[in-house]
Nucleic acid binder design. Structure first.
Length: 411
DNA sequence: TGTCCACTGGAAGGGAGGGCTT
DNA sequence: AAGCCCTCCCTTCCAGTGGACA
């Protein structure tokens, strides 16, 4: 019989019992361990909607992986279940990291209420005012309660200001039939400082803070998912403990715990092993960190990549501490050899700040007295790995062998 | 104590690219 | 086709500044 390269993979039985999505953070189990209090509290707020009243607006705070989104979606499913009796509740979830403009948010909400394709709000082109008016009319067509969930709402505010929130929070004044309430989810407690006081008070009628999970709670979460996803004996209790411990260090992040376990399982599966051990978890831990960084770098715009490459090339010849001026000089040389338009230093300052925010580099403003005041810049990821990723970029490939003249500092 | 460097980072605005309306 | 709107990426301009040095 002819053998195929994939045979070995096809024949091996999957380590997962059925769906590996059970280990994804987006999976909503029938019960959310250690979030009973939060669910009860939020449910009691939302229950007013079942009576056709407008629930208070709520703000949910908590670090990543503390179950905010899961809790909200869990309640969304519960509402869905009771929907047959109460078809007048619309539950709209939106992630503001993806939809992050005024227009985008309004357009997105509006289109949930528009069935006919040709009546839909286009993704650009209309004045915002018109999008808002259409949205308002559509919502108000029926007597209903609309619950709008804005996940990562802080991202929206930082990027586009609070205009949308202002409009949405006072939309009820213009509605006759429908009632709208909002749930804002944020992992930044301070973002409300950036809101107009009126918006702040309207949006934060109720506030809830989700505490991080501790290692024991994470263990419970993992144990629950493990029993759903695997046959018994495949995952050691010690494996679960390790995932929980590692994720607890990471501010009690359940998402991280689940990712660790899922990737550990995938590594074990690829090695055709039938048991997931601590060894796989450590491997998974390294991979998550590396993958995350590589992905961020890979998807950077070309100009940012050039800036980063400049910093790394300097690093390679021993210039560990660079100023904005140094980086700009190297950047210009790289641009010339790649025949790419050179941007102004002002713009590069912004790109440097962005790289800093992404955690790829470390840039602190420092004064050198007469030497001026500038940023002191260092890479904070592995230069070797970063360079490998950068060199895979099509545009940067042509300058792979370019050696810009680097200022060598006297040590 | 004042000077002065090398920027920082805000403000305003241009213009390209998406698209709608008339 | 001309006239709008909105967002994104960038430029131009510039007041402001921490601290070593004279």
């Amino acid at each position: 019989m002819e053998s195929n390269i994939f045979d070995a993979y096809i024949q091996t039985k999957s380590i997962f019992k059925k769906d590996r999505d059970i280990l994804r953070p987006s999976y909503i189990p029938e019960r959310l361990p250690h979030r009973d209090e939060e669910i009860k509290q939020l449910a009691s707020i939302l229950s007013t909607a079942l009576r056709g009243e407008r629930p208070s607006n709520v703000l949910l705070f908590g670090k990543t992986g503390t179950g905010k989104t899961a809790t909200v979606n869990y309640l969304g499913l519960e509402i869905e279940k009771t929907r047959s009796k109460l078809s007048n509740i619309s539950y709209i979830y939106m992630n503001c990291e993806i939809v992050d403009t005024q227009y985008g948010v309004l357009q997105n909400i509006g289109n949930r209420f528009i069935d006919k394709f040709d009546e839909r709000i286009p993704f650009t082109g209309w004045p915002t005012e018109r999008v808002y008016n259409t949205l308002r009319e559509k919502i108000d067509e029926k007597k209903r309660v609309v619950v709008i969930i804005l996940d990562e709402v802080d991202k929206l505010v930082y990027k586009s200001g609070d205009d949308v929130l202002y409009h949405l929070s006072k939309i009820n004044d213009d509605l006759i039939n429908a009632k709208v309430s909002m749930i804002g989810i944020s992992n930044d407690l301070k973002f409300t400082d950036f809101l107009d006081p009126r918006v702040r008070s309207r949006l934060g009628e109720e506030k809830m803070v989700f505490p991080p999970y501790n290692a024991d709670q994470l263990k419970d979460i993992l144990t629950q998912r493990v029993s759903l996803a695997f046959d018994s004996g495949i995952v050691d209790p010690s494996t679960i403990s390790l995932c929980a411990a590692l994720a607890a260090q990471e501010h009690g992040d359940a998402r991280r715990a689940l990712d660790l376990l899922r990737i550990a399982a995938e590594i074990a599966e690829r090695n055709q092993e039938r048991k997931i051990t601590e060894h796989h978890v450590y491997k998974a831990n390294n991979r998550i960190e590396l993958d995350c960084v590589c992905e961020t770098i890979r998807t950077l715009p070309t100009q940012s990549k050039l800036v980063l490459l400049g910093i790394i090339l300097n690093e390679e010849v021993g210039n560990h501490k660079l100023t904005t001026g140094d980086v700009y000089t190297t950047y210009k040389q790289l641009c010339r050899s790649a025949s790419i338009t050179i941007l102004t230093q002002r713009r590069i300052t912004d790109l440097i700040s962005e790289l800093d925010m992404l955690g790829i580099i470390n840039a602190r403003v420092k004064s050198f007295g007469r030497g001026g005041r500038t940023k002191e810049i260092q890479v904070s990821v592995s230069p070797f790995e970063t360079k490998k990723v950068l060199e895979r970029d099509e545009i940067l490939m042509q300058i792979k062998n370019c050696r810009p003249k680097l200022q060598t500092t006297l040590i």
